[in-house]
Design a protein around this nucleic acid. Structure first.
Lengths: 113, 113
DNA sequence: CGGAATCCTAATGGATACTG
DNA sequence: CAGTATCCATTAGGATTCCG
């Protein structure tokens, strides 16, 4: 059996068209409002931004701080626990970087995939 | 810009409902025939097994060796390059394991997600 | 401002049957 | 045995509108 393989658990947290980008911006900026994330990721819709943030929040990767005021203000930041993801993200980034090189060697520069 | 973030590149290789399981079995067994993989992963269809194997092959993670005989025989194994994925897979596995613990602490044992 | 609700499209995954 | 080919179901993602 392979039920002791938890690679997929880690994948779950990162999979989603926008999650890596969102994490990238929050990690770079520390704290970001909903509208700031929208500005930083122009092509994302509110619905997508909301759903991806909620999933990350569910997994305790990011924090959601609501200010009870009008107009509303909501801030997102990494949780302490979520910061523990950073080494893994870096490993993935580095491997990804090397892999692009590798694909170029095999298939040439054209193929982006 | 966040275009220098290549986390997604790494994700691409692993995303796909069956890829982690397939890699797990090939890594555990060294060399496996198509039919052996089918036995080890009972719920997968031929179509899915084929497509996932082809994607891994495209990325030079696994090798496909065809024996020109009747009945056909095809063996799959990790490439040398593909073995370089192992540390990353282990990191992800370990993080995933710890994350399940963490979720249990937050939400209790019931929630599997 | 930061969403929720609704509807729609595209991509992924699966069942089944056929083939060299 | 190791696949294709077709067709169908499910899911992810997106556009738009509305709301406190």
């Amino acid at each position: 059996m392979s039920n002791d393989c938890k690679v997929e658990t880690a994948l779950d947290i990162l999979v989603g068209k926008w999650k890596p980008v969102i994490l990238y911006h929050i990690l770079s900026n520390g704290i970001l409002r909903f509208s700031e994330l929208q500005r930083l990721i122009p092509d994302i819709t509110k619905k997508m931004l909301t759903s991806q943030l909620r999933e990350l929040e569910y997994h305790d990767i990011i924090n959601r701080k609501i200010y009870a005021q009008i107009p509303p203000k909501v801030e997102y930041s990494m949780t302490e626990y979520g910061k523990g993801l950073m080494p893994l993200l870096e490993s993935m980034h580095n491997w990804g970087l090397a892999h692009i090189e590798h694909l170029n060697e095999i298939y040439g520069e054209e193929e982006a995939k």
